[in-house]
Write a protein that binds this DNA or RNA. Structure first.
Lengths: 197, 197
DNA sequence: TGACTTACTATCGAGTCGATACTATATAAT
DNA sequence: ATTATATAGTATCGACTCGATAGTAAGTCA
């Protein structure tokens, strides 16, 4: 049996476990369950390439089948809408309905966000840094893929000068113009910057 | 809709969410699921007063009924053993079998513990401090009860001099003697120190 | 055209989950 | 002592997650 001494690293893992259970428990509200809340949050944070069942499944680290069921429930409750993708007719595009977006004001994870906000600024940023390192270390070690935003993506083509209405920037993968706000959203297609440099 | 700007506190909540999902995913191994792993870990960390279905349910923040089923599965797999309590015949005492204890060497949460161990010592302890504050703040705000160890418990009666084989210390609630090792285990009955001072 | 890949859905069995109802035991009130 | 009530645990139900598997539809490439 492993040595579970109360050293710092052991405590961190235990605390993450504990907060995870707490978050799990808190998310049984408003008639939803944790997986459904996760899906709503993701759809509010995902860019157009990622508002699909497949990207959601990837993000939730679950199968497409399971995700399909979760979406069926959310659609039946009127929080999510599906519509076909024009470019690729295999793809289903997802969208939060106004009711779904409004429901996020009651997101139980806001309880945790509020508690984090009450930490001192320095402690909050240190905490974010530490958690981020752990997250990426485990993802890398287990060969899991990560989501990111344009500014951390090798496909991103910045253009700060132009002021096109469709968006000043551009995605090097799809060629699509990107509005400023879109560059802050999560994307399935992100790759590390300068992969061959 | 809530303002989800990428400020520090928002990042912390999002990272906790993300690591929670990661932990959830990692725990579908060895034929077990997250709830079953949580139960095994708890039983390895709980003192004799807390190795019961009721205490486990309280710790997991789930119903007794659900816990009963989880235990039935773990017992059928040979990881947990039940035996009657002599003092109170309503109570069922739980115990990890050797197989159950050995299985904890393959606990998927060790992946996260290892990643935490790779942080610098200072960052690790800061991380533990921040997570602990968030955890307790949310628990307090939501009126949830917490588990603790003897050294943080108002019932605890320290006795560093005596060297009784049954244990030098004592629990003021039950009157039982406590061995040194037992005082590091989780207990359902913990209360704040000096509740009326 | 045909082989292959990708995006999604449907279905199955095991398990979680809350809710409810139930049994057995302990404790308090009378 | 008897009764009422509270507590510990279990059983069962329906909704849901989950992985696994199989299937459909659509895009891609040889």
């Amino acid at each position: 049996m492993v040595d579970r001494k109360s050293s710092s690293e052991g405590q961190v893992a235990e605390l993450i476990d504990c907060i995870g259970r707490l978050a799990h428990f808190l998310q049984f509200v408003e008639g939803l369950n944790p997986a459904q809340w996760e899906a709503l949050r993701f759809l509010a944070r995902a860019n157009r390439y990622s508002q699909t069942p497949g990207a959601l499944a990837c993000f939730l680290r679950t199968s497409r089948g399971t995700t399909s069921q979760t979406l069926r429930v959310l659609e039946s409750k009127g929080y999510v809408r599906r519509f076909p993708d024009r470019r690729d007719r295999r793809v289903v595009q997802l969208e939060l309905t106004p009711a779904g977006a409004a429901l996020l004001d009651h997101d139980p994870m806001l309880r945790i966000q509020e508690a984090a906000a009450n930490l001192s600024g320095e402690m909050g940023s240190d905490l974010a840094e530490g958690l981020s390192r752990i997250l990426h270390a485990v993802e890398k070690r287990c060969g899991l893929d990560e989501f990111g935003v344009c500014w951390e993506c090798g496909h991103f083509l910045v253009n700060n000068a132009a002021d096109d209405r469709a968006g000043p920037h551009r995605c090097g993968l799809t060629g699509d113009p990107l509005r400023e706000a879109e560059t802050r959203l999560l994307c399935v297609n992100t790759i590390p910057i300068t992969p061959q440099a």
